[in-house]
Write a protein that binds this DNA or RNA. Structure first.
Length: 997
RNA sequence: GCCCAUGUGGCGGAAUUGGUAGACGCAGCAGACUCAAAAUCUGCCGUUCGCAAGGGCGUGAAGGUUCGAUUCCUUUCGUGGGCACCA
């Protein structure tokens, strides 16, 4: 009877489904454990082997915890709203709901093949009205709340209204408030709501017809599609995540995330502490006041200790004061500079970081601590309008950017740090003692910071201030396929829908194009606009910010998640996913959780107790070389139009690697790349001869093309000018990097007319490890591997590749080893010819030792997510049991329980074959007993001067004097001693012996 | 530029955290079984000197601490990721 994994896996997957083996209840006396995978977006491309890595890890952990007696929640669902489905809808006209449905079912069938233990009854989809009803409801909770700065938490906006009605605030009295119009009141409240609407500069992407979040813009272009992005003022919804900046930082101390992950979040929040202070603007040089009244510039600085080193101020070009302070003399230059800045796209401003530009405004400011010092005020694009106050005080001796600016524009530099400043570059130290610094002179800089701020506050010219790099999160998309906002706009006021009006369902549309003025597609529906509904929809992270709660109580129509359920399941114990969500999703869901906690909706304020980041599985791409040509044309003036068209056609054909259908085998490339100008040796001569031959072949096709067009006289071809590589689908390349040309040409239209130049008939591809993706033609489909080797083999092999958190390249060859291991395990129970070989005999000490060694190792490795070493331990265990010819049920049965999380199908089958009732998942996890591992003696390694020379068998309870005697008596040790006395003998009990000579 | 990872055989990776470097697997080589193949089993498998016994070298590189360093410290190089005129 052989290991028929296909039958076994089908059978048990069926059985699990029918018996609802993975169904989880919210009532249990067992301790709870919540294991969650990051919400997948059901893309049309399906799974490749990189995707299930994290799912397998979480599945192993879930099954392990269940065996250990926990009530384990391990759900799966789909983040099914999103841009790609809509993009696809625009391209193909199919409704996103239909394509999403189709994608999800493909996705689910792929997952089921791998044998995951999800409770599918708890599946959620963000695009399901039953789900997004509660996303809308939670949005309204955010809308109806504000952040109370005194209590540092969210409170109902009604509390704030009551306060305004009875005591007003610093800007208005209660009476004034009560006399404000409805619109005026709402505008004021809007400034405090956690979900609020405002006009703001947003990243507008014409091509996508939508506004993008900061983290969706990469280098000035959209992350998806790479389309240009420009600033545009629009009405947008935002989440006031900045209010939670401090708590998001503090919360990091309480969660078990990797340091790298925490650091990324800290960077993103970008907290800095410093001071805001005013610099008065002086009258200008020519005696003319630059302005009519007293003006001042507010700057933000983290280094108020350097106040006496300020040599100039810089305002952002967009700063509102620029116009007022510019003197008549400088007006023209400033205007010119402003025009220049406007002409520069964000992209350019980012690309040319090193270039120093700026313009003097003509105005001077006065240093509040040294009124004799006139400080020129400049504008420069390196100061950003959106950060801090949009103005800085420049200290060239301490800040490299300021230093560069001062040098470039010949501004004199004040040194306040003595020898720490060498005159050639700025020194940003905080350890220097201040000089030339008035009341701060003699203080250590880091101590002076606090002193300076105190003084600034005392004089009333500024105040201590925290600053954050993080901005409020843009929360609307001018898109169709997302949650509609439960908001109506009436007379310019955002009016929330009542709870009983939810869900506000997404209407059906025929077209997905943008509406007028960059509005979303919903603006094209008369029935929608007639109701004055908001026309934008929520972004992808709306639904995914709280989904982990819905799994706890997925069917509930009365509330988003019953408090009893969320109190029971509480935080996610282990959250597994990639680092790509480090700052987006994780920060948003942490914020939502804190708001829900503040409002008393749930009982915890961090969603994820522990985070495990899975590494990427990379693909090994294959490439074919392509070479481009340079052309020279003569007599261009004499050419007629027809000839010019022909020439351009040929030029573009042989310059564009996509168009050249002529590929060169890797082993030929050295002849193309390396040229010996004066070949001397025989080898070099042969090389050049060979190069000539290749050139002849390469140039022939170009020459043919030229003569076909009768351009011989006109067009000259220069040899090779450019090397390109083109991806070749990896299924046509074998492990020796040889390409199956024939098959490729037959099956892939892109290569049907291709020509392959080879050395001796075999085309060799080059290889490179890169991200696994469809576009790189290097994906491996898990379905095929499951078909060929079985899900159990596939699961164990993915884990065997290396630590879960590490990225590593995929190599299909190695899977054989794991498959052999499972067959070897099978043979401990069944022989191909004899059938059943397991027995009820009593296990020997040696066999029990193997078992308990394995129990110990597997238990600790599984708990620590060290799955690669656990798989090794199983292999060692099975190897040893096979060597011992152990077929005893007493041992094997325990081993089966251990392996259940890793290879659930074979474990169930053999468990069943041994005559057990019920699922192996309900068995008791084996208990480790140390007594089986106790040894009487140990083979001690013996080193001389730290170098291993021999080993001696010594009783484990032997003490130093006895060991010393044995070691000195050893002949190998004696040989190294050469009759001398050892200086020292180091004995570490249970470890080793070292003799020092 | 700054921050965080990471570097070990032909390859993926182990090493109980300062104590026998290379477990386990892949690939490779040799052999057994077989008419043959597959499957399975046995042995070898970092490098170098040596017939062997045995020795030298070896965890990106160079130093240091230590009886002893893949592990700790300093400097440096490569790779990957994150952030970036952030005041």
């Amino acid at each position: 009877m052989e290991y028929n994994f296909r039958e076994i896996e089908k059978k048990w997957q069926q059985s699990w489904k029918e018996n609802k083996t993975y169904s989880v209840t919210n009532e249990s006396t067992r301790p709870k454990c919540y294991v969650l995978d990051m919400f997948p977006y059901p893309s049309g491309a399906g799974l490749h082997v990189g995707h299930p890595l994290g799912y397998i890890a979480s599945d192993i952990y879930s099954r392990y915890k269940r065996l250990k007696g926990f009530n384990v929640l391990h759900p799966m669902g789909f983040d099914s709203f999103g841009l790609p489905a809509e993009q696809y809808a625009i391209e193909t006209g199919q409704h996103p709901a239909d394509t999403t449905e189709k994608n999800i079912s493909t996705f689910k069938s792929q997952l089921d093949k791998i044998g995951f233990c999800y409770d599918w009854d708890r599946e959620v989809r963000t695009s399901d009205p039953k789900y997004y009803k509660w996303t809308q409801w939670l949005f309204l909770q955010l809308f109806n709340s504000y952040f109370c700065n005194t209590q540092q938490k969210a409170r109902p906006i009604a509390d704030l209204i009551k306060k305004y009605e009875t005591s007003g605030n610093k800007d208005f009295t209660a009476e004034q408030w009560n006399n404000f119009s409805k619109k005026e009141q709402e505008d004021i409240l809007m400034q405090r709501r956690l979900a609020f609407s405002s006009f703001g500069e947003v990243n507008w992407c014409e091509a996508l017809g939508t506004v993008l979040a900061n983290d969706e813009v990469v280098n000035g272009v959209s992350e998806r599609g790479g389309f240009p992005v420009v600033k545009k003022k629009m009405r947008q919804w935002y989440l006031r995540i900045t209010a939670y900046a401090d708590r998001l930082l503090q919360g990091l101390e309480t969660v078990n995330f990797s340091d790298a992950m925490k650091e990324m979040q800290r960077n993103w929040i970008g907290k800095s502490e410093g001071a805001e202070m005013e610099f008065a603007i002086a009258k200008s040089d020519d005696g003319q006041p630059a302005t009519d009244g007293p003006l001042s510039v507010k700057v933000y600085t983290t280094r108020p200790d350097t106040i006496f080193g300020v040599d100039f101020l810089v305002l952002a070009p967009e700063h509102e004061l620029v116009n007022q302070i510019t003197t008549a003399d400088q007006r023209a230059s400033v205007d010119e500079y402003l025009t220049y800045v406007k002409s520069r796209s964000d992209r350019e401003r980012m690309a040319e970081v090193k270039q120093v530009t700026g313009c003097f405004t003509g105005a001077y400011a006065i240093n509040p601590f040294d009124e004799t010092k006139k400080i020129p005020v400049w504008i420069a694009e390196y100061v950003l309008a959106g950060y801090g106050t949009g103005a800085i005080m420049a200290v060239p001796c301490g800040d490299q950017r300021d230093y560069g600016f001062a040098r470039h524009f010949n501004i004199s530099i004040t040194n306040i740090i003595g020898d720490f400043y060498n005159g050639e570059e700025a020194n940003p130290t905080k350890e220097a003692t201040l000089e030339n610094s008035g009341f701060l002179t003699g203080l250590l800089m880091k101590d002076a910071i606090g002193v300076a701020i105190d003084k600034i506050e005392e004089l009333g010219i500024g105040k201590r201030k925290k600053n954050y790099r993080m901005r409020d999160a843009g929360f609307s998309r001018q898109r169709y396929w997302g949650e509609p906002f439960p908001i109506k706009w009436i007379d310019g006021v955002a009016v929330p829908l009542e709870e009983n009006e939810l869900p506000l369902e997404l209407p059906h549309v025929e077209k997905y194009g943008p509406g007028p003025e960059g509005e979303g597609p919903l603006a094209n529906i008369p029935e929608w606009t007639a109701q004055h509904y908001e026309t934008s929809t929520m972004p992808g992270y709306a639904g995914s910010s709280w989904y982990f709660l819905r799994y706890m109580d997925p069917q509930n129509d009365a509330t988003f998640c019953d408090r009893k359920a969320s109190d029971y399941w509480n935080q996610v114990d282990v959250y597994i996913g990639g680092t790509e969500h480090a700052v987006g999703h994780l920060l948003y869901s942490r914020m939502w959780t804190k708001v829900m906690y503040d409002l008393g909706l749930i009982g915890f304020d961090e969603p994820f107790k522990k985070l495990v980041n899975q590494g990427m599985i990379q693909g090994v791409s294959a490439f074919a070389n392509v070479i481009g040509f340079n052309f020279g044309t003569n007599l261009m003036a004499k050419l007629n139009e027809e000839q010019q068209v022909k020439i351009n056609k040929i030029k573009s054909k042989f310059k564009n690697p996509e168009a050249i259908n002529f590929y060169i085998s890797e082993d030929l490339m050295k002849y193309v790349r390396i040229t010996h100008n004066f070949p001397t040796t025989e080898e070099e001569k042969n090389h050049m001869e060979f190069q000539d031959k290749i050139y002849t072949i390469l140039l022939k096709q170009v020459a043919d093309e030229i003569s076909k067009n009768e351009l011989e006289e006109i067009l000259a071809v220069h040899p090779i000018n450019n090397y390109y590589k083109v991806h070749v689908p990896i299924e046509y390349v074998n492990y020796k990097d040889e390409l199956d040309e024939e098959k490729l040409k037959k099956e892939n239209s892109r290569f049907s007319d291709a020509e392959f130049l080879t050395m001796n008939g075999i085309f060799i591809c080059s290889r490179e490890v890169e991200k696994m993706s469809k576009s790189k033609f290097n994906t491996i489909n898990p379905d095929e591997l499951c078909d060929k080797y079985g899900a159990d083999t596939f699961r164990m092999y993915e884990m065997f590749l290396g630590p879960v958190e590490m990225s590593k390249p995929w190599d299909t060859k190695g899977i054989e080893g794991v498959h052999r291991f499972l067959r070897k395990l099978w043979r401990l129970f069944f022989d191909e010819l004899k059938g059943k070989v397991w027995t009820d005999e009593k296990a020997t000490d040696a066999e029990l030792k193997v078992l308990h060694k394995t129990i110990k190792k597997i238990d600790s490795d599984t708990e620590q997510f060290s799955y690669n070493t656990a798989v090794s331990a199983f292999m060692i265990s099975v190897n040893e049991l096979a060597d011992l010819k152990c077929h005893k049920k007493e041992v094997l049965e325990q081993l089966l329980i251990l392996i259940t999380p890793y290879a659930p199908h074979i474990a169930e089958e053999l468990w069943d074959a041994l005559g057990n009732e019920g699922s192996v998942l309900d068995a008791a996890y084996p208990a480790f007993e140390a007594k089986y591992l106790v040894e009487a003696t140990k083979e001690y390694p013996v080193s001389v001067n730290g170098k291993l020379r021999t080993s001696i068998n010594i009783a484990t309870d032997a003490e130093e004097p006895a060991v010393r005697e044995m070691v000195l008596a050893n002949e190998v040790v004696q040989k190294w001693l050469e009759g001398k006395e050892p200086k020292k003998i180091i004995f570490v009990k249970g470890k080793m012996v070292n003799v020092v000579i």
